[in-house]
Design a protein around this nucleic acid. Structure first.
Lengths: 135, 135
DNA sequence: CCTTGACTTAAAGTTAACTTTAAGTTGTAG
DNA sequence: CTACAACTTAAAGTTAACTTTAAGTCAAGG
């Protein structure tokens, strides 16, 4: 499979694919002349990368989810990522509730609505500065 | 309240506060000489901004959640943001489940585990390119 | 065999969200 | 009243995640 097909199937520009390879997130399994050749499995990898970036992980973090084994994943790291996601899900839920309430609320200003203020206040707690990042 | 106190209370560097003001996300309500003076309410605004950025909204999107009214928020926009959050929560939940499963899974490689692959596949659907952004 | 379109690399450019720096101003404690 | 720590602005620098550009290589169809 050459880069154009991977690009078509993954809906990612070839520049992004080369960039990911340069960053060590994917790999090509040989060349035809100069041209990269890819194995089917790169598509799964790319799906995982897309999912990861979509939910807010950096490329470095995503890379750290893969070991050198080529497809294998570090189990402890996975669990800690899952915990991070749990935290984030809670925050998102809180914010969603806050937004829905704010939209329905009759208070003249949202900043005068006690419920909204309580949501904000809770949100302020639990500042998570940084998470596991690997470059 | 001068900028140092806002900085202390919000735990944001003064440079960030000036940057937010320049971007129109917060405002100072006058000067003492050259020095910005802030109203208490800026702290709520900052809490909301922190929550928003934490859950993945851009500063432009967050700004668009405030109208010119100074504290008021556009209700329709709030609801659409809430819907966006629902989508994101679903994805995060899916990914969290995927990670937990992957960590527990006995398959030799996660890419050989049908359950994991199914999660990946679902994740690939529903690419949301961009959301409402305002500058 | 030759053209050409798809590939290649290296380097520079882009955007968001800040931070840092340089040079200057000023409120306020002593 | 004066020193100076804390403020000010404007501009340049930084990082992540890409994209664009420039200049060159080459597989494959005609």
């Amino acid at each position: 499979m050459d880069i154009a097909e991977v690009s078509r199937l993954s809906e990612l520009p070839t520049s992004t694919l080369r960039y990911y390879e340069e960053k060590g997130l994917i790999e090509s399994n040989g060349r035809n002349g100069l041209r990269r050749q890819y194995h089917q499995s790169v598509l799964q990898r790319l799906a995982l990368i897309a999912l990861g970036t979509r939910v807010g992980f950096s490329l470095g973090e995503i890379k750290s989810m893969f070991t050198e084994g080529g497809g294998e994943i570090d189990r402890a790291l996975l669990l800690s990522k899952a915990d991070e996601l749990d935290e984030k899900i809670k925050e998102l839920t809180r914010m969603r509730n806050g937004l829905r309430h704010a939209a329905a609320c009759q208070a003249p200003s949202h900043f005068e609505c006690p419920k909204f203020l309580r949501i904000l206040k809770v949100a302020g707690k639990g500042r998570v500065k940084s998470s596991v990042k690997v470059r």
